[in-house]
Amino acid sequence: DKPLMPYMRYSRKVWDQVKASNPDLKLWEIGKIIGGMWRDLTDEEKQEYLNEYEAEKIEYNESMKAY
Rank of each mutant, 00 (worst) to 15 (best):
K65Q: 10
W38L: 00
K65Y: 08
N61K: 13
K13F: 10
R12L: 09
K19H: 05
S21P: 00
D24E: 12
Y49E: 03
D1G: 09
K57V: 13
D43L: 09
L25P: 00
A20Y: 05
I58N: 15
Q17T: 11
Y67T: 06
P23N: 01
G31Y: 04
K32T: 08
K19E: 06
E29L: 00
D43P: 14
K13N: 07
Y60W: 08
G31R: 15
G36Y: 08
M37Y: 00
R12Y: 04
G31I: 12
A66L: 08
E56W: 01
Q47H: 04
S11D: 00
E62K: 14
T42A: 12
M8K: 14
K2C: 04
D24P: 03
M8Y: 09
S63R: 14
K65T: 11
G36M: 12
D43A: 14
E48C: 08
Y67A: 15
W15L: 09
D40M: 06
Y10W: 04
Y60H: 05
I30W: 00
R9D: 03
D16A: 14
D16L: 04
D40S: 10
W15R: 06
I30Q: 00
G35I: 07
N61T: 09
L27A: 15
S63P: 10
Q17E: 14
W15N: 01
I58K: 14
Q17L: 06
D40R: 12
K2Q: 04
E48A: 10
Y53E: 13
Q17M: 09
K2T: 09
R9F: 02
Y7I: 07
I34L: 02
E56I: 01
M5H: 13
I34D: 00
N51Q: 12
K65H: 08
Y60P: 11
K57A: 11
E54N: 07
D16T: 05
Y10R: 01
K46P: 01
E44F: 04
Q17P: 03
K2V: 03
E48F: 05
A20V: 05
Y53V: 08
K46E: 02
L27W: 12
Y67C: 14
I33D: 02
I30P: 01
W38D: 05
K13W: 00
E29H: 01
E62R: 12
L27G: 15
K65C: 09
G31N: 15
R39I: 04
K46W: 01
Q47S: 11
W15F: 12
V18R: 01
A20I: 05
K13Y: 04
M5S: 15
A55D: 10
A66F: 09
W38Y: 02
V18H: 11
Q17F: 05
Y53G: 10
M8R: 08
L50V: 15
N51H: 11
Y53F: 05
Y60S: 13
E29G: 01
L41A: 05
A55C: 08
K13H: 03
Y10T: 01
L4F: 15
P23E: 02
Y53A: 09
A55M: 09
K57D: 11
E48K: 10
Y67N: 14
E62T: 08
N51I: 12
I30T: 02
I58L: 14
D40A: 13
G36A: 12
E62H: 08
S63E: 14
W28A: 07
E56K: 04
D24N: 14
K46D: 00
G36P: 03
K32C: 05
K19T: 09
D1W: 01
P3G: 07
S63W: 07
S63C: 08
E54A: 08
E59G: 11
Y7F: 10
R39V: 06
E54W: 02
M5V: 13
D1A: 05
G36Q: 15
L27Q: 15
L41H: 02
Y7T: 06
S63G: 11
D24I: 15
R12C: 06
K19P: 00
E56H: 03
D1I: 11
V14E: 03
W38M: 03
K26I: 00
D24S: 12
K19R: 12
L41E: 01
L50H: 13
R12G: 06
N22K: 05
K46H: 04
I33S: 02
G31T: 14
I30F: 02
L25I: 03
I30R: 02
D1F: 07
E54R: 07
I33H: 05
R39D: 14
A66V: 10
G35N: 13
T42F: 03
Y49S: 03
I33A: 03
M64K: 09
A20L: 07
N22A: 05
L27Y: 13
I34A: 01
Y10C: 01
G36D: 14
N22H: 15
E45T: 03
S11P: 02
Y7D: 04
K19G: 02
R9Y: 02
R12F: 03
K57T: 09
Y49H: 05
E48I: 08
N61F: 05
K13L: 04
Y7L: 08
Y49T: 03
L25Y: 05
D1L: 04
K19S: 11
L41N: 02
E59M: 10
W38V: 01
V14N: 00
N51A: 12
E48S: 11
Q47V: 06
Y49L: 04
Y60D: 09
G35Y: 11
N51G: 07
D24A: 13
D1M: 03
N22C: 05
L27T: 15
E29K: 02
A20Q: 06
I30C: 03
D43S: 10
E48D: 09
E29I: 00
E59A: 14
G36K: 15
L25C: 10
